[in-house]
Amino acid sequence: MAAVGSTKISWRLEFEAHTSRVSCLSLGKSSGRLLATGGEDCRVNIWAVSKANCIMSLTGSKSPVECLQLNASEEQVVAGSQSGSIKIWDLEAAKLRTLMGHKANITSLGCHPLSENFLASSSMDTNIKLWDVRRKGYILRYQGHTDAVRSLAFSPDGKWLASASDDCTLWDLGAGKAITEFKAHSGAVNIVKFHPNEYLLASGSADTIKLWDLEKFSMVGSLEGDTSAGRGLSL
C-alpha cells in the first residue's frame, strides 16, 4: 500500500471560453463552483467548475469586457467594459441593468463585503465611484489620482477602500476622502489587496510588492525584484 501523501492527484480541464481573448474571470466565493468569464467578444459566460459546457452566455455589452465580479450570493454578475459602462446581470431574474458615469475603460470592480447593494468601480479616467445598484447614478466619487486607477479593494469591514494608481491611496468609504497615501513605490501601482484578518494592506508595482501596517500607516515589508508587472496578488 502506498504511504499516505505519496500520491499526488491533479486534474485539468481546458476549454475554449470565448471566441476571442479572455480578459477577466471571477470565481464565486459562496460555493466555489460557479465561474464567470469576460472577453473581447463583449460577452460574459457563466460556467460550472469542472464542466466544459457554458451554463449561460450573457450579452448586452457593446464593447469588450475588461473586469467582472460575482456578488457574494452568486445571484448577480457585474462587468466593466472598455466604453466605461457597467453592466449588472441578475442571473435569477434574467434582467440586465446599465450604470453610466465613467468616461474611459473600467479597470476594476469591487462588491461591498457586507452589503450587496454597494459596488465600487475604478477607471482609466482617474476616478473611483461608489454605486448603490438599486439606483442609476453613483452616490460618491473619490477624486485625487492624476493617473489611471488600475485596481481597488474594499477592507474586510467595508469601511475603507484602497486604490492603485500613481500611488496607493486609502479612502474613508463613507466620507469619500483620502485617509493617507502610500508613496514608497518607484513606479505605478497595479494591484492592491487587504489581508482578510489583519490590519494589513499589500500593494504591487512592476518590480516591488509592499506591505503596509494600517494601524500605524507605515511600511512593514517589501519584496524587491521582478514581480511580473505585479498584476495579481492574494493574501
Rank of each mutant, 00 (worst) to 15 (best):
G80C: 00
E74V: 04
I139H: 07
L223Q: 13
L140V: 08
R12Y: 04
S73P: 03
G39E: 04
T169W: 13
V220S: 06
G39C: 04
I179P: 00
W160E: 03
I191Y: 15
L161A: 05
S205H: 07
A79N: 02
S122T: 06
K29H: 05
A178I: 01
T7G: 00
A72M: 10
E198W: 07
H112M: 05
D90T: 01
P156I: 00
L130F: 08
V133I: 15
R12L: 13
K210C: 15
V49A: 04
V149R: 05
P156V: 00
W11N: 13
W131Q: 12
S61V: 01
T107I: 00
L140E: 05
G101C: 02
I46C: 08
P64F: 04
V22W: 10
P196L: 02
L13H: 14
H112P: 00
F15Y: 15
C67G: 09
S165P: 00
A79D: 03
K29V: 09
G158F: 03
R141K: 13
S222I: 03
V189H: 12
I9D: 08
R134K: 09
V65A: 04
M56N: 15
E116A: 03
T107Y: 02
R43H: 13
A148Y: 05
L214H: 08
T146E: 14
C24S: 11
A120M: 07
S50G: 05
I55A: 13
D41T: 01
C168N: 07
S61T: 05
W89L: 02
A72Q: 14
V49S: 11
V77Y: 11
F217L: 15
L109R: 02
Q76L: 14
G174M: 11
P113Y: 00
H102E: 02
W47T: 01
N53E: 15
I46L: 14
A148I: 00
G60E: 07
T180S: 09
